[in-house]
């Protein structure tokens, strides 16, 4: 009898243990480990900092509500009454085309150079030492912003369009090299093996298998970079004197303080950006239809 009782108790204990285990499993769905703890501490720290900063900002003598009202009225002038005193709409249009030209040229240069670098940086196409070297080099270029490269080259080429072209090309090369090489690496190694086995050489394999297989990716990355370069080209016009609409924007805001002109230029840039976006979407759509 006693034996049986003990064994029943034992069952009970086991059952209890089982329950404890179940409980642990449930809480283990989101365990409080090191990384989630660190995340919570950081979030707490940031919220404390934000609240502290809001209370200790030096507002000087600015009347905040009035400043808001003034800003809104400025925006009203910019966006509701766009007009230019200095140039005609046609001239402004021409300047935007100059900016697009800058973006197009740097993207084209970048794409051609990046194609070669991308091949050499793809692990399935080039020896490991070469890919590592190029990837490190390109990562370094990418880490420095485009505008800094333009200013660095301005030392040699002088502030202006030459420095802007070189600097923007530089950054485009690094960006596209990374994008291209990753598209190339997506390609199945087996296809390369099949062509090597039939006696094809490296260049033949690249042009007959690698590029046809990744053409869609290459094009969509290049378009993305073109859009980025368009925005960059506007900024370069303002910051590095690379002409184009950016320079006019800079003059309107910094020199003439002409809010209505800023409005006009902003609308123009917006219109072109939308047009570019539409074109690139259309082309991508057409490519996808073929795939």
């Amino acid at each position: 009898m006693t034996q049986i009782e003990e064994s029943i108790k034992g069952w009970g204990r086991l059952k209890e243990k089982g329950h404890i285990n179940d409980g642990m499993d449930l809480s283990a769905v989101k365990p409080l480990n090191k990384s989630s703890l660190a995340m919570r501490i950081i979030l707490l720290f940031l919220s404390v900092l934000t609240i502290y900063a809001l209370f200790t900002i030096d507002y000087k003598s600015i009347d905040v509500p009035k400043a808001f009202a003034d800003t809104i009225s400025n925006f009203k002038t910019i966006f509701l009454h766009p007009y230019s005193h200095r140039f005609s709409l046609w001239e402004a249009f021409y300047e935007v085309v100059v900016t697009i030209g800058l973006a197009f040229l740097t993207t084209l240069f970048g794409a051609v150079i990046a194609l070669l670098f991308g091949l050499l940086a793809a692990q399935n196409l080039a020896p490991k030492q070469v890919t590592n070297m190029i990837k490190a080099f390109v990562a370094f270029i990418r880490a420095v912003p485009t505008i800094l490269w333009v200013l660095i080259f301005a030392v040699a080429a002088g502030l202006g369009s030459a420095a802007a072209v070189i600097g923007m090309t530089f950054h485009s090369v690094s960006y596209l090299t990374k994008a291209y090489s990753e598209s190339f690496e997506d390609l199945d190694r087996n296809v390369l093996e099949a062509l090597t086995a039939s006696g094809a050489n490296w260049w033949q394999i690249v042009f007959q298998a690698v590029i046809p297989s990744s053409a869609t990716y290459l094009l969509s990355w290049t378009f993305l970079r073109f859009e980025i370069n368009f925005a960059n080209a506007v900024a370069m016009g303002a910051a590095a004197g690379a002409a184009g609409i950016g320079f006019d924007l800079f003059m309107a805001s910094e020199f003439y303080f002409d809010l209505r002109e800023i409005g006009l230029i902003t609308y123009l840039i917006l219109a072109f950006a939308i047009a570019l976006e539409t074109i690139s979407l259309r082309m991508k759509g057409r490519l996808h239809k073929r795939t």
Binding site: D188, N190, V191, E193, A194, Q208, S213, A215, T291
Partner: peptide, 9 residues
């Protein structure tokens, strides 16, 4: 090859 290894596109 087992997986044909063709250029699909």
């Amino acid at each position: 090859f087992q997986h044909y290894n063709l250029v699909d596109r």
